[in-house]
Design a protein around this nucleic acid. Sequence first.
DNA 1: AATGACATGTAAGAGGTTACATGATTGT
DNA 2: ACAATCATGTAACCTCTTACATGTCATT
Lengths: 182, 182
Amino acid sequence: MKENTTEYVILGILRNKSRTGYDINKVVKTRLGPFWDINYSQIYPTLRELEKGGAITKRVEINERGQNRNVYSITNEGKNKLKEWLLKPAKPEKHKIELMLKIGFGEQVSNTELIKQVQAFRERHVAQLENVYRIENELKAQLDQNEANYFMLLSVELGAKFHLSAVDWADTTITKLRSRDK
Amino acid sequence: MKENTTEYVILGILRNKSRTGYDINKVVKTRLGPFWDINYSQIYPTLRELEKGGAITKRVEINERGQNRNVYSITNEGKNKLKEWLLKPAKPEKHKIELMLKIGFGEQVSNTELIKQVQAFRERHVAQLENVYRIENELKAQLDQNEANYFMLLSVELGAKFHLSAVDWADTTITKLRSRDK
DNA sequence: AATGACATGTAAGAGGTTACATGATTGT
DNA sequence: ACAATCATGTAACCTCTTACATGTCATT
């Protein structure tokens, strides 16, 4: 039993708006990226599979520049498929945090090097925090326009908490490492 | 350029103690698991590769039960390899949080179902928090015995922050979803 | 003339999961 | 008798990343 989550990410993104593969990628990068990233080499083949299975339909449109684009729309079948998946228990969270390994084995290198690593980590998460706040503001501004935004906002708030605690940990840890130096 | 992180996880675990593949797996599950999981089908082949490359050596021992076990030890070469890796910038963090997708697309299902999902998420993270606290206590109790424990403790504290904010988010979100019901 | 956005894809390889396979010893 | 722990592995499959490949249009 293969449960291909990529399919459901795409169905979810198409659930209230038709889009091209290119558009789907943009939504993933700007909204889901840090918590469920996928890329073109997964998106395009999966779109064809979903179409073959009847969950979405394709129509060829021409954009403002006169270029062809394949616009995909969810079908009722696809919407049901999505809903069924939403009811199933979510898979446990998985994380790959290389920095935790590098700090955990940290007695092998100098404090200066560790501080550098933590600072880079901090910067990554500050950047992602800013991104999350931008998304939050966008969603809040459109809360009355679409009920879906409320739920996306709940989801994004978890991201905000994660990134905040990452920055927080980094600050504490840099201080600790610095005081150890003396 | 393949940078196989599994190799470095293993070198890191072997850096201050010789162990079997079975032992390495236990360390991963009990200490690194939530932030960098690997399993037997990665561990055993990688041990053989590291041995072939001269980073570790194998010797066959017999345990208290009289069973054979392959005990691996890090070499100087392996320690240098580990240190070089520790100095390289850590790869950006990656997360797979299916729950965020399920909440994000949540207007498709009932509030009751969403609350169930968030509760399950909460329970997962409460369990992991307890685990992290147990590890913290173990490490704190042995802080003077081994300098390495100090760094592992720093690393584990990030885990504690993550799980705490997950539980926190879950509580807030369950309240929000319940009040929406009425 | 160059850059960035729009647009769609493939191939190869690396990384990771799950199921299978086996067998001894220890504790309840 | 049964479950847990110790111990080592393979095979098949799925997922994911990276590099390659191409072309248009709009803006600077």
